[in-house]
Design a protein around this nucleic acid. Structure first.
Lengths: 162, 162
DNA sequence: TAATTACGGATATATTGTATCCATAAGGAT
DNA sequence: ATCCTTATGGATACAATATATCCGTAATTA
């Protein structure tokens, strides 16, 4: 069980977009070169983000992507779910109903399986954690991790491409 | 991203074993019939549990599996990790190092990527949640969910098989 | 008109999950 | 002793998903 590579790419792309002026756009080509990942496949992830309303894409030359909302209104969970989907990591197939000695309606079956409830509760803890981190909060972390020089150099390289 | 079917099977098998006397054993055949899952494939999950020291398997007729430890000393996380492995759901490929304008040693690279740290923190929240539920705790939940009659009927069916 | 872009569909390949089969060793019953 | 049942582990086949590429279309700018 592991998340798609696209999740990592999408998170880094959004982090990059969050560090730029809202009106500036970056093309798939630029984002792919910056991160060293295949352009065509990255495009699929960006399209998923676009469809989820996290980024906004425009056509034509000088087109590309920008964040569709303020950075403090986009959480890591938003991005992960846009690319990975919203299904729980645990799929309950209701094997309790396969029980050969179970009489019909012995238990009503309206309640979810106790095992599934526990697993879904853990998923919710995972989501809560990711819901607690916005792109703005991540930018603050990044500012502590990297030197101003590195951040500025990246910024200039990206803005020179578009 | 989704957990193996084997995780669900392993959890239910362990829950069943937790409801039986410690000295009684259940065979793969019985566990597979009870849950309506393929015997050969379930066997792989039980072998993983055995190798992780969660259940103990013995050979020969009247052989089978029992819990290797008391039910209050086995957590959901133990079982999930035995079957699914201990890798994080997020694999960091360090795409930050692909940055074309990055100068060598601009940042030291000893620190994990900020994105990965956030994702791994969420994984830890997931693990914490599963670590908090033991098989004994689950048995108490099950006792509330199901009627004593159903539990006893299951118990008798299982003990009659072995 | 030409070039560049996002977008979406179709396809191909690689990796992983699911499932089965078989050989082996060990324990219990006859 | 012999036979049956069991766990264990290896090998294999098949299905589903992830990864990646290619192409056609529409929109936008120069």
């Amino acid at each position: 069980m592991i998340l798609r590579n696209q999740v990592e790419w999408a998170l880094h792309c959004c982090a990059v977009l969050a560090g730029l002026p809202q009106d500036r756009r970056l093309s798939t080509r630029t984002l792919a070169e910056f991160h060293g990942v295949p352009k065509e496949y990255l495009s699929k992830a960006l399209q998923a983000l676009s469809q989820a309303g996290i980024v906004s894409g425009t056509l034509g030359p000088a087109g590309g992507y920008r964040l569709a909302r303020p950075a403090d209104d986009i959480t890591f969970l938003d991005i992960v779910e846009a690319v990975e989907g919203r299904r729980s990591t645990f799929a309950c197939t209701n094997i309790r109903f396969n029980n050969p000695c179970r009489q019909p309606c012995a238990d009503d079956g309206t309640k979810a399986c106790s095992v599934a409830r526990i697993m879904w509760q853990a998923d919710e803890a995972w989501r809560d954690s990711l819901r607690g981190i916005t792109l703005a909060a991540h930018a603050a972390i990044l500012a502590k991790d990297l030197s101003p020089e590195v951040l500025e150099r990246n910024r200039q390289w990206l803005l020179s491409r578009g």
